[in-house]
Design a protein around this nucleic acid. Structure first.
Lengths: 307, 307
DNA sequence: ATGAGGGCATAACCTGTCTTTATGAGCAGC
DNA sequence: GCTGCTCATAAAGACAGGTTATGCCCTCAT
């Protein structure tokens, strides 16, 4: 323990300051049902367990969350706020769970989906969650890979529906555009480009070394096409996350899907640089073997993706 | 165990299917550092603990996450995907933590913020996270209430900076617009309005009983002003969450801030109904006592909110 | 080649948290 | 005043996750 009240240097990781998922779920149930015992029943635990768990959560957070009365429990003001923040965590966990479940069901599932990385990372969990709500008994399996791998799985009948983000639709597949994505140029907030008001022109972008995904990635293909194959790499990294991390740390400007940097932009860890003359839009498409129009669960999933 | 492979009726709550936060943080550290032992050191645990924890996470998910080799550990394809989903949970947990910490520091903090509910729920955690990144040593306290309560706190010097979402700026306060919010009409996907292509007119909206926040709430004020005080309540509920839940369950159309329903819209649990002739825009403003321009941390927080 | 070092696995043991069961007490409505 | 709902407290057991102590494998440099 620190003897004097100085701030800890090792701030006891998040897991020690944030209640675990079970406690958060319990809190949501209490908020919804207005009763500790009721929430306990819903989660299949006993009332004392629920009471003690909520109490220890209040101790951990240092804030009273519920007003307990002999005829029920209501949230305090702070409790209502905490509950809303907790809901965010639980929703992220639900998306995680939907994805993990699809990943686990390696074979013999009723709906087999193949998707390229960006879509699998950022969009599919939400869709799977919605699909599960609409068709709880449909088991879904997911395989992630690049466009070519998706096409191969579809053509060898190892997948029922695919999602790709490339420029061209692989031959032998039919497709429909389900969304549009834009690549954007981002920098750390202290980079000179971050303060720039005048849009960046294509030749400026092409002349500047950038943090990029490796050649062959969907992102890189679109950028090279837009600049005429001229993009100069400062570093080449093999995952979106690595590119983001490098950009945040100030290594230089990076080119990324807007899907990947929503959080970073809103927290201003990264700043978007305006572009002119360059269209870095790309279509996100659902694909299937020519002729085999999606039916059943595949059709349902497809309809969920077009909002 | 179920004897036959029927789906469980009690699907062992989320917490049993999603690894806990500590495990997810560990996985992120392994992904970043490429080594179990390194990740263990970073989190202040021993290498066997990290190894066992990752292993039990793989058992829980039924998917191999890392390739362990005598010269380090790399993520598998599935592991990369899982790691990205895990990052979402951890980010939500960081926002939760930032908010909770602000809620805990009831007094004597360097920066005291008062905010109305919608802002406190949906925007502040992200800002606090960014502020913590920029100024790690600034202790922030947060108090949530309606516009009048925010004004009172500022004027009695119980808060340094406020955020309100009403139509008018309380007297005695200066303000700056930091963002715009729109109220939108939403319904469950199976409601007749969900398929509507023709925009809804003001009189139609005013003629229809709606699920609303109680009179006096910021949301209700804006709606009543836009419709000339004519909104007909179907039910009045005292929290955004309750309104959302009622709308999702199909009770009828609801009017809510677009900030509150992002997730529901993208998962199509709710559908937005187009409006015409009605402007339900409202400004989100930062406020402070007239004359006392924000300085120091308050100024910094303010600058973070204007993206 | 060979020794040093980094990286992972296994085993035995400890501890804290969460759980259940059992019981008591406050408030409402008939 | 009884019945039924609520929540609180106490004692005891189960289990997950942590630690220390080893050992094996691979790579790199001497």
């Amino acid at each position: 323990m620190d003897a004097r009240g100085e701030p800890h240097r090792t701030p006891a990781s998040l897991a020690h300051r944030v209640p675990d998922l079970g406690a958060l779920e319990l809190l949501l149930a209490v908020a919804r049902l207005g009763s500790l015992g009721g929430a306990a029943r819903e989660l299949g635990i006993t009332q004392p367990a629920a009471s003690s768990r909520i109490r220890s959560m209040e101790r951990q957070l240092g804030v009273a969350l519920v007003d307990r009365s002999p005829r029920g429990s209501r949230l305090t003001d702070a409790g209502a706020l905490v509950t809303d923040w907790a809901r965010r965590i639980v929703e992220a966990a639900e998306a995680f769970d939907a994805g993990a479940q699809a990943l686990r069901d390696r074979r013999d599932s009723r709906l087999r989906v193949a998707a390229s990385m960006t879509i699998a990372e950022y969009l599919l969990p939400g869709w799977l969650l919605a699909l599960r709500a609409a068709r709880p008994d449909t088991a879904v399996s997911l395989h992630a890979g690049n466009s070519a791998a998706v096409a191969e799985r579809l053509l060898s009948d190892d997948a029922d529906l695919g999602f790709v983000e490339g420029l061209a639709v692989p031959t032998g597949l039919d497709s429909v555009v389900i969304a549009h994505d834009h690549l954007i140029v981002v920098t750390a907030p202290d980079h000179p480009w971050a303060r720039r008001r005048r849009p960046l022109a294509a030749d400026e972008l092409a002349a500047t070394p950038l943090i990029l995904r490796e050649k062959g990635s969907g992102t890189r293909q679109v950028l090279d096409a837009a600049l005429g194959g001229l993009a100069r790499p400062l570093i080449e990294l093999s995952s979106t996350t690595a590119v983001k991390a490098a950009a945040v740390s100030g290594a230089g400007p990076a080119v990324l899907s807007e899907l990947a940097v929503g959080e970073e932009l809103s927290l201003r860890r990264l700043v978007s640089v305006p572009l002119s003359e360059v269209s870095l839009a790309r279509d996100l498409r659902a694909v299937w073997p020519t002729g085999h129009r999606p039916t059943g669960p595949a059709r349902e999933l497809l309809s969920l993706t077009r909002g």
